[in-house]
């Protein structure tokens, strides 16, 4: 029973991916999509979900939508503009290095969201993670400082949203 409950989230994801990849909404796709979603959801339930109750909390969904808008339209744009400026600048002002960025979230999904958000914005890449000490090792195009107060600036926004979506 608990596996069936856990299968809801992965099953919904599989259904949406199936319909989008198939490219049309018709009877055939909906019928086969439901069957595929049930099978895939059941198969992946135990490796994907440990706390299915979180799926039903609407507040988390609201934070997710807010984060998607904020991330793609503000943080991404800002990072792109910054890196573009460095590329076209005649003196190419870069000061690269690898810094420690501490994080304070507890779930794997929140940690991964922060890491992927850092990597996906130009100029910063997570090269490793230490879950014992709770730090990311981040390659930064313009190292402004190695102190945790400074490096946390990279992930502050991401961590704020990730902890509210997943923790």
């Amino acid at each position: 029973m608990s596996r069936a409950v856990r299968a809801v989230g992965p099953g919904l994801l599989a259904f949406v991916v199936y319909i989008v990849f198939s490219g049309s909404v018709n009877t055939y796709n909906i019928v086969t999509g439901v069957v595929v979603a049930a099978v895939v959801g059941f198969l992946t339930a135990n490796i994907t979900v440990s706390n299915p109750g979180k799926l039903g909390e609407v507040g988390r969904l609201g934070w997710l939508i807010a984060y998607a808008i904020r991330y793609f339209f503000i943080d991404e744009v800002r990072a792109h503009v910054d890196v573009m400026r460095r590329i076209v600048h005649p003196r190419m002002p870069i000061n690269p290095g690898i810094v420690r960025v501490p994080y304070a979230v507890s779930s794997d999904y929140a940690m991964t969201t922060i890491a992927n958000s850092i990597t996906n914005t130009p100029g910063t890449v997570v090269v490793d993670v230490d879950t014992e000490r709770k730090v990311f090792y981040v390659h930064w195009i313009d190292v402004k400082g190695v102190e945790p107060e400074v490096t946390r600036g990279i992930s502050r926004v991401f961590e704020f949203f990730a902890s509210r979506i997943f923790d």
Partner: peptide, 14 residues
């Protein structure tokens, strides 16, 4: 990978 495994299977079925 925990998430993409399900996505891969859905695409394969499609």
């Amino acid at each position: 990978t925990r998430i993409t495994v399900g996505i891969i299977l859905a695409v394969a079925a499609s």
